[in-house]
């Protein structure tokens, strides 16, 4: 990766928006990596939670939005529960998802969910899944 850092990056409006809707402050993160270390799904993420926050600190809006990380996060709150700085990466991922979903862009088509799953899975999985993946 190569970044050209400009003042506009550091003052990224996108990052400010995410911070506003999530109530988190990316600057609080000092990159200890505890979140990535404890995250049960970071192995599946393009960038682990602390890297996403690092990219936010550097104002790399596109890299943050292009990563699959936000869709992989399950919101188990393990990151937050052990964060020495009280930052919730889970909240940040939710904010990133919300920005996409509020534009009406779905991450998951309901038709694509196989019928046995629709019938067999607990309702709560569907409700929660729709909340997280569907606008």
């Amino acid at each position: 990766m190569k970044f050209k850092l400009k003042n506009e990056n550091i003052a990224s409006e996108f990052v400010a928006h995410i911070e506003k809707i999530t109530g988190e402050n990316a600057k609080r993160c000092y990159q200890c990596g505890n979140c990535t270390g404890g995250c049960p799904v970071s192995f599946k993420m393009d960038h682990g939670p602390c890297q996403i926050i690092r990219l936010m600190q550097m104002g790399q809006d596109e890299a943050v939005q292009e990563a699959n990380s936000m869709w992989v996060c399950v919101g188990c709150m393990q990151c937050y529960s052990r964060c020495p700085q009280g930052v919730s990466a889970a909240n940040i991922f939710e904010g990133l998802r919300q920005v996409v979903l509020r534009k009406g862009e779905d991450h998951q088509e309901i038709e694509d969910i196989p019928m046995p799953l629709l019938k067999g899975a607990p309702q709560q999985a569907l409700v929660c899944g729709f909340r997280k993946f569907v606008s």
Binding site: P40, V41, K44, N68, W71, V72, V74, G75, C76, Q78, Q108, D112, I113, L117, A121, Q124, A125, L126, C128, G129, K132, F133
Partner: peptide, 18 residues
Amino acid sequence: IECCGAHLAVGGKEGDDV
């Protein structure tokens, strides 16, 4: 105390894998 994967059960193939 670790996560089971929760709603990713309906998160498509990738989610199911997780």
